[in-house]
Amino acid sequence: MPETPAGPTSHGRKPYLIVFGLLFAFTVLEVLVALPSLGIGRLFKGSALVLLAVTKAGMVALWFMHLKTELKVLRWSVMLPFALPALYAFVLIAEASWRLLL
């Protein structure tokens, strides 16, 4: 059975408002985590902030850009290239940081 085809379809408003609320809440959480006065460890702070940012970006892509309702082929054709720079970043930044420690 074919999946639902992509196109300018009519979407309900409720998911948008839920995503908006979550994006706002996560932004507040990010600012709180970044506060130096809280004394959160560097590794935990960095991991939490990256995780929150990726979650927020994913929500925008899936719900606001409607990737969630696109066909699998189109969805992965878009999401994979979006994810690749993150992999390159991890490898290259880890390498640069490691050289600094030598």
Binding site: V78, P81, F82, L84, P85, A86, Y88, A89, L92, I93, A94, A96, S97, R99, L100
Partner: peptide
């Protein structure tokens, strides 16, 4: 997607410079 690679390049350069 091509624009994402442009931003990815900038952020990579930023990360490498900062990390080093």
């Amino acid at each position: 997607i091509s624009d994402a690679f442009s931003f990815g390049g900038f952020l990579l350069a930023y990360g490498i410079l900062r990390g080093g």
